[in-house]
Design a protein around this nucleic acid. Structure first.
Length: 260
DNA sequence: CCACATGTTCATTT
DNA sequence: AAAATGAACATGTG
């Protein structure tokens, strides 16, 4: 489920389990997930060192080592971290063993995840042309990034170059909360709708983190618990399912009317 | 066997 | 440059 709230949970998990322990062994199980680095370089960088802190930006987690380098982690669609014994991880791609005998596994069945190294996360973020982080951005900048954008609102929310962190599920939730139709051209939204969208984006992301990124467990008044075939809007209408920018999109035709 | 999946990137076309 | 569309990536699940 790796969207921003997921990453926030992963960061907490990483910080609580994997800091300040010397790394005793490193196994790159699937070199295919490495970007601009090699198994050898990963080993050299990690071995004998320890993680001292981490930073989340959008859907990325940067884990800093005591040698100044950062392990970059992106979790794709099915990636997650597991700390403990090796058995707890079915599809390990990178296995780190600490001096305590415990393992940290970067697990990713589908291998859409990516691992890399950098000395400067800010440079990496710049090179990747990532937009502002959805949880950090203020309203002024939020308005600014959509200025002159003519595209549909949902693909823009999903575009990591515009705004970093929002994925398919929470994009649907944010638009639902804001009563904005996913196909609405960005320039059609008025000032009040932008304010609503900004407010709901923050609220949804924070709520998702509060609920441990379990979309199904959100309150009944949210879209996500009903986001499945045959699901109904809490207000009674049948949810519509359409494709937007190649992604499956759920919305309530009553709540979210297209403007024109 | 088929359809679908929380993400990103690239090619093609408008 | 922008924006829309579709495919590709690799693999599990229903």
């Amino acid at each position: 489920m790796p969207e921003l709230p997921t990453l926030e949970i992963y960061k907490k998990y990483f910080d609580e389990t994997s800091l300040h322990q010397t790394i005793n062994s490193v196994r790159v199980v699937s070199p295919e997930v490495l970007v601009e680095t090699s198994s050898e370089e990963i080993k050299e960088t990690l071995l004998g060192h320890e993680f001292i802190q981490s930073r989340r930006y959008g859907k990325y987690l940067f884990s800093q080592l005591d040698n100044g380098l950062f392990l970059i982690m992106h979790f794709g669609m099915t990636g997650f971290l597991h700390y403990g014994s090796v058995d707890g991880s079915r599809y390990p791609r990178l296995l780190i063993e600490f001096s305590t005998g415990k393992f940290l596994s970067f697990d990713d069945a589908r291998k859409f995840g990516k691992l890399g190294l950098t000395r400067h996360p800010d440079e990496f973020i710049k090179e990747k042309k990532l937009g502002p982080d959805a949880l950090e951005i203020n309203f002024k900048n939020f308005k600014e990034i959509f200025k002159n954008k003519k595209g549909m609102i949902k693909p823009l929310l999903l575009n990591q170059h515009v705004l970093a962190g929002i994925g398919n599920l929470y994009a649907d939730e944010i638009l639902y909360q804001s009563r904005v139709h996913p196909l609405t051209p960005a320039h059609m939204l008025d000032k009040e709708e932008w304010e609503q969208l900004f407010k709901d984006m923050k609220r949804v992301l924070q709520k998702a983190i509060e609920y441990q990124d379990k979309p199904e467990a959100l309150p009944e008044s949210y879209l996500l618990p009903h986001r499945h075939q045959g699901g109904k809007c809490p207000e009674g209408d049948q949810l519509n399912i359409i494709q937007v920018g190649g992604r499956t999109t759920y919305f309530c035709p009553q709540r979210q009317k297209i403007k024109h």
